Computed example of a mutant assay.
Amino acid sequence: MSYRIFTLFICFLFLFGCKPYETTKVRKNQITYESFRENQRTFPSEDGIIKYIDKGNGPVIVLLHGVPTSGWLYRKMIDPLVAGGYRVVVPDMLGFGSSDSPEGFELYSEQNHARRLLELMNGLGVDTWTQVVHDAGGVWTWELFKSQPNRIVNLVLLNTVLFDDGFYPTIQLQPGIASKTKMWSYRKGIATNNLFKKLFDEGLQQNKLNHLDVEGYKTPLVEGKTDALYYYYSETCNQLPDYRTTFDSIKIPTTVIWGIHDTMLQWPPQQLSVANSFDVKKENIHVIDEKHFLQETKAKKISYIIRDFLSSNKAK
């Protein structure tokens, strides 16, 4: 191996070999991605198979992920919510997690994601439910409200996409060969570590995830699931739809649980707009000492806030 090739190889390892997790010990009874997938069920949507968790009995709560995550993000919240007397549905949206990832672009539009979520809920025989949204799960939810405004009866906002003010995505791409090459590098495992290291370092106050945590985020990408990411990073992140009219039409109990140190979806620039648009009461705004991925470090706290919020509304 020539000196030049060797140097390039070392530079390659330095740039792309960084691990997106600390060398922390595996936690006791930690959930593995393999066991998570074993508990997922299958729904044949019009566009492909959607995998989802369906656990518990009682009023339904849907936990909706964003980009580039999946239902895995909520793995620590499922049991606490089930223990509170709820049926918890956690989908991997098409193109994410264990669900199918058919080739396409418009297939992953906000409208199509909303349509498929409605397909899933109709297939499960669920008429109304509480929706918990994070990150891009917000834009899919706003499209759902446009077509079926009466299906969601309670809303929980977790660091989700709302207004241009406060929206600072870590990744923004222009459509074309360069961005498609980046997606290829994620599928091949070349830049996947780099992607998640950047996201977790920016999205957590202290990135103490271990290899089992990260496995659930990385695996779908190296399995080839990047078309949905490409749409979001090259389309939605460059031209966020204006949903203010939709927000004003939403007249249901809403609570906000927000990681105050989030740099991707900042709370201060939009807090008044959110409170006014959704008519959120002061006691239903919960500012959490975390950044973007608050489900990783504050799962139980969030779950109990949601349970208290729903119990309070039920009592009324």
Rank of each mutant, 00 (worst) to 15 (best):
V156S: 01
K28Q: 11
S109M: 05
I171D: 09
Q174Y: 10
N193I: 03
I250D: 02
F163V: 04
I306E: 07
Y33C: 03
L173G: 06
H113L: 15
H211Q: 13
E215D: 15
L81F: 03
T219M: 13
K314M: 11
P102H: 06
T246I: 14
K28M: 03
L221F: 12
I152S: 12
G123M: 12
S45V: 10
G97M: 05
L199H: 02
G176F: 07
E235M: 09
N39W: 05
H286P: 09
Q111G: 08
V256K: 00
L212C: 05
K218A: 08
L162C: 13
T245F: 09
K146F: 12
R151K: 15
C237D: 05
L310R: 13
S98P: 06
V222F: 07
C237V: 08
V153K: 15
D308I: 01
I31K: 14
L63V: 00
V280Y: 01
G138D: 04
T255S: 01
P241F: 10
T181R: 10
L64M: 09
G166V: 06
I152K: 06
F16K: 01
I306S: 00
P268A: 14
A228M: 06
R4Y: 09
S35C: 08
E283Y: 01
E22A: 12
Y186K: 02
R307F: 09
N193A: 02
H65W: 00
D135R: 06
S179H: 03
R4T: 11
A315M: 07
G125V: 11
W142A: 07
R4W: 11
G104S: 03
